[in-house]
């Protein structure tokens, strides 16, 4: 399945962890302002694939990446690319929330500050706006100076989402962002994704098929480092074409 103007286009991507060939000939188009989910069993490579989008593998030097990842048509693995500029375009939500070791306020202001925003009033305004965007403002407005680690884990994950939004990304990458959360917090995050897809392209790694179905428009099944099938979510989950996909969504494969 291809799109005319995908937000991210992956072309013949191969990734090696030392001798381990972790991603094999991946080609996929991630559509603009839609939610695309990657499903598949643990260790299939879905998170690895996600991390190639913002070059988070750069810090682990045993990793070798071949092929292209085009962001709005530009290869992010080309020579001389400003990695920080690419990462700024993508907000990452990890499996467990990792608030930075500072106050709630400073967590949100962190991104704008490192990109040069110094105006106190503007920062105040940004913090309020993004905390409202993730429905956290009412819960924390009286303790913005408190350490972010004092929030509940569900609140922390929403804080991390707000922190990511504060650098005005175009894309949100979610790496099983609800796997550490209780059902209520999970529901809040899922609702946020549905609202946010009007403004952002969202890529979601999940191992919960129902979550993929609730949230995503398109779904890719990843298995043993390969994309087995990529289709609109309903079609992939209810009427898969490939046998492997069929086995997985019916629970025979894990």
């Amino acid at each position: 399945m291809t799109f005319e103007t995908p937000h991210i286009r992956v072309q013949d991507l191969n990734l090696y962890y030392g001798a381990n060939h972790a991603l094999k000939n991946i080609s996929i188009d991630i559509p603009d302002k839609k939610v695309t989910s990657f499903i598949g069993p643990s260790g299939c490579g879905k998170t690895t694939l996600l991390k190639t989008f913002n070059r988070l593998h750069d810090s682990s030097l045993e990793v070798k990446v071949e092929g292209k990842v085009l962001l709005d048509g530009e290869d992010i693995y080309a020579k001389g690319v400003d990695v920080t500029a690419i990462r700024k375009k993508m907000g990452l939500l990890s499996q467990r929330p990792f608030p930075l070791p500072m106050s709630i306020y400073d967590n949100i202001a962190y991104g704008p500050r490192i990109h040069g925003e110094r105006d106190r009033h503007k920062l105040d305004h940004l913090v309020e706006q993004y905390l409202k965007d993730v429905a956290l403002w009412d819960e924390v407005k009286d303790r913005l100076k408190a350490p972010a680690s004092r929030l509940s884990i569900g609140q922390q994950q929403r804080l991390c989402l707000a922190r990511g939004l504060a650098v005005e990304p175009e894309i949100i990458l979610g790496d099983e962002p609800t796997s550490a959360l209780d059902p209520v917090s999970t529901q809040k995050i899922e609702e946020l994704f549905l609202q946010l897809k009007e403004k952002y392209t969202i890529v979601l790694v999940t191992h919960i098929l129902r979550q993929a179905r609730r949230v995503s428009d398109y779904c890719a099944f990843v298995y043993m480092g390969e994309i087995v099938e990529f289709a609109p979510t309903e079609q992939l989950l209810l009427d898969p074409k490939e046998k492997l996909t069929k086995d997985y969504v019916r629970g025979f494969l894990s």
Binding site: N54, L56, S59, T84, A85, R87, K88, M90, G91, L92, S94, Q95, R96, F98, L100, P101, Y110, G111, I114, H115, C160, R163, G164, V167, L173
Partner: peptide, 17 residues
């Protein structure tokens, strides 16, 4: 935690920041 450092990097911070 490596993921905490990654969180900062993925906001576009340089390694030094």
């Amino acid at each position: 935690p490596r993921d905490m450092l990654n969180a900062s990097l993925s906001l576009g911070a340089t390694p030094w920041q």
